[in-house]
């Protein structure tokens, strides 16, 4: 017999969001069948999982740091992000369009996917759990400043906050403003200041003092 869709109450995920045993076995069944039918191979599944690690916020940080230190690259990035990021080795084949939004002293951008979880995966990897959750998706569009405060981000009233809703076909990456007191820093040094959330817009980059404090606690 096929599993009825009305008996799901027996196999909800637990409170930590771990998949229920029903879904774990369903995943295995579908994967094994698709491998048996030659839709894909077990090796391709493994390769795909390994490849997930190659797309991470480190890619975004590298791009932002390059934009901060190279005005020509920054202009290119804002004009044609797909071409610009491809030029530094990001594989944009079969990826949705990418647009970069520049934060300035007047405008702060924050991105969301109210309908689901569209995210600039090509340059940031998979989205964090909160990005996919009901609370962020529901609230950031009506109370962006309140939401940013929950992330510990307090913006001056003089800054205009723009919330951008992602689409399936076009993804947005935030280019945060370069922090003060970083004159003369190399792109490599700057990368350490560029957090994932600063490229989503729920945070701003670390200051040199914050980086120093963070490094001190870790060692």
């Amino acid at each position: 017999m096929t599993e009825s869709h009305d008996d799901k109450d027996d196999h909800h995920q637990d409170e930590l969001g771990h998949a229920s045993s029903y879904y774990v076995i369903l995943e295995e069944a579908i994967r094994v069948l698709l491998i048996e039918k030659g839709v894909f191979t077990a090796q391709e599944v493994e390769t795909q999982i390994d490849g997930m690690d190659s797309r991470s916020p480190a890619v975004g940080s590298m791009i932002v740091a390059k934009a901060w230190t190279n005005p020509d690259f920054k202009a290119w990035l804002l004009r044609d992000a797909v071409e610009a990021v491809s030029s530094v080795g990001v594989d944009m084949n079969n990826q949705p369009d990418l647009v970069v939004l520049e934060n300035t002293a007047e405008i702060h951008h924050v991105v969301v996917c109210t309908l689901c979880s569209c995210y600039p995966r090509a340059v940031l990897g998979v989205p964090p759990a909160w990005y996919k959750g009901r609370e962020y998706r529901s609230r950031v569009v009506v109370d962006p400043r309140g939401v940013l405060e929950e992330f510990g981000t307090y913006l001056s009233d003089a800054i205009n906050v723009r919330v951008i809703d992602q689409t399936a076909d076009r993804r947005f990456l935030v280019l945060p403003s370069r922090p003060e007191f970083t004159d003369g820093w190399s792109a490599d040094q700057l990368e350490a200041l560029i957090t994932r959330n600063s490229m989503i817009g729920t945070a701003i980059p670390l200051t040199p003092a914050q980086l120093k404090a963070e490094t001190a606690t870790q060692s």
Partner: peptide
């Protein structure tokens, strides 16, 4: 799925890594 603008509680900021599932 169309939940933009609805009321909702505080955001859970904890980062959990993806499970193997």
């Amino acid at each position: 799925h169309d939940i933009g603008g609805q009321d909702a509680g505080p955001i859970d900021l904890s980062d959990h890594a993806l499970s193997s599932f």
